[in-house]
Amino acid sequence: MNDIEFEIDGKKVTASKGMTVLETAQKEGIYIPTLCHHEKLEPFGACRVCIVEVESRGATKLVVSCVYPAEKNIIVRTRSPKVDRIRKTIIELLMAHAPDAPQLLEMAAVYGAVPNRYEKDPSFCIHCGLCVRYCAEVAKKHALGFVDRGVHKEISFIPEIAAKECHACKECFPLCPTSYLQAVFVLTEALSFPDSAVKK
């Protein structure tokens, strides 16, 4: 057997080749918060909230568990003062965009995140990329993508494709942790292909 044995929070766990630390933890019922992870999608590693401490041959480092592969004999700690502090900051930063997102509120309670710690931003997208990746990887339509970079990065529908595909699909809508995706869709629809909106 090529089972990989290691430890998460003091518990002996086993993973098979190719599994990530997060997948192993989920299989074992150990909670690690996530925002940009989805079981059907390739790991993305963007929200960084799934960060954990890994001890390997005496050295401790921080890694994001949704990307980090299970490795023999490592010791994983899903919480530590530093991990908690980083998660708290990440949640607070995202609450500046999506103060009412249920997932964020839940995590905020666990990590003591304070809403309104940072100045609000009038955009609700938290750039988890679930919509973009779902459409590309699962629906295979490439009807939306990220545009621009840095603090100007936003998601955007590609009207020519969205007009044809989205009404029949709408599969990515429920994945969005905020209401942003639908809002952008409605806006794109109204601006770019109002006819199909009327027809539906």
Binding site: G45, A46, C47, R48, V49, I86, T89, I90, L93, L94, A96, H97, I126, H127, G129, F146, D148, R149, G150, V151, H152, K153
Partner: peptide, 15 residues
């Protein structure tokens, strides 16, 4: 803030 690619939260939102 402009040089960041904008993918991850600590960098994009932190900056």
């Amino acid at each position: 803030t402009d040089e960041s690619c904008g993918k991850c939260v600590p960098c994009r939102e932190g900056l």
